[in-house]
């Protein structure tokens, strides 16, 4: 029972992180039709920003996380302006090439300044909570609660505010959005900003129980792509549920089978689900 519960906590933790990363990826894809391969690099930069703000500049954990979110959101907006906006009339393959270029550029830049070493961020929340024999590490609880709070906040923003509604409108009907006077540039920048902030927060939440290094985003972004393919490209609930499915599959698969193969699980699941439901789990009517 206890071991089982432990895996549930691990699944929720991983699922929360994957869900947040996939959410940013799916927003950008759903609204701007850009498969942003550089999203994993934004995640990585987020971890390094939190690391630098905490270790080198001595900020508290939460301040560092907020700073990192702002920096990476700005980086996302810059990417949109400097890289993707100029390519808006180009064939889609150019977006993909540019995104991979950005990914390599960011990785190389971080490696230049910080080196390729593995680093650790010590969380102030390294205690362990016990409930009746069940054990929850504080940081994992923080990850789960943080992800839920962000999701509720994002949902509120998208559904209940006019600014958020412009993003949904653009996703549901691009021309319709233009015809009511929505400024596509504003929506594009906002989407990249939100996507970057989500990646940075996910990285900052996860970093204390993981390592920080320049290529840390690669495996995460591959899984995030698996998730949004599973969930239906562009679907918000699909990204969250897809994240949970992969998170749980890894936690339980890694525990009951072989943890050395846990990264294979998501790709195995992708093959199975796509052969049964090629359109993804929630392809229709999601958003």
């Amino acid at each position: 029972m206890n071991l089982f519960f432990q895996q549930v906590i691990n699944g929720l933790t991983l699922g929360s992180i994957y869900g947040l990363v996939a959410l940013g990826l799916t927003l950008v894809y759903g609204i701007l039709h850009i498969p942003n391969f550089a999203h994993g690099a934004l995640y990585m930069v987020g971890a390094f920003m939190t690391y630098t703000l905490m270790i080198d500049l001595g900020s508290p954990y939460w301040t560092a996380m907020a700073g990192s979110a702002i920096i990476v959101a700005t980086l996302g907006i810059l990417l949109e302006r400097l890289v993707f906006y100029p390519l808006r009339h180009s064939p889609p393959i150019h977006h993909k090439i540019a995104a991979i270029g950005v990914l390599l550029f960011l990785e190389a830049t971080v490696q230049l300044f910080w080196g390729a070493d593995f680093r650790r961020i010590a969380s102030p929340y390294n205690g362990i909570l016990r409930f009746d024999g069940l054990i929850i590490p504080e940081q994992r609880l923080l990850i789960i609660c943080g992800a839920i709070t962000l999701l509720i906040g994002l949902q509120y923003f998208l559904r209940k505010t006019m600014t958020g509604a412009t993003i949904i409108a653009m996703a549901q009907n691009r021309d319709g959005a233009f015809l009511v006077g929505i400024d596509s540039n504003r929506v594009a920048m906002m989407t990249f900003g939100i996507s970057g902030a989500l990646a940075a927060i996910a990285a900052s939440l996860y970093a204390p129980i993981n390592l920080v290094y320049p290529s840390m985003g690669n495996l995460v972004i591959m899984k995030a792509f698996v998730i949004i393919i599973l969930g239906g490209m562009g679907s918000i609930p699909g990204a969250i549920l897809g994240g949970m499915i992969i998170g749980f599959a890894e936690a339980f698969g890694g525990f009951y089978f072989a943890s050395a193969y846990k990264d294979l699980i998501s790709f195995g699941l992708l093959v199975i689900i796509l052969s049964v439901r090629p359109q993804g789990l929630f392809a229709k009517g999601a958003h």
């Binding site: 509604a165 549901q172 009907n173 319709g176 929505i182």
Partner: peptide, 15 residues
Amino acid sequence: RKLFPQMSVHQNLMM
């Protein structure tokens, strides 16, 4: 028409 199909009628009008 170019409506926002999953938004409610009221939301469409308000957009």
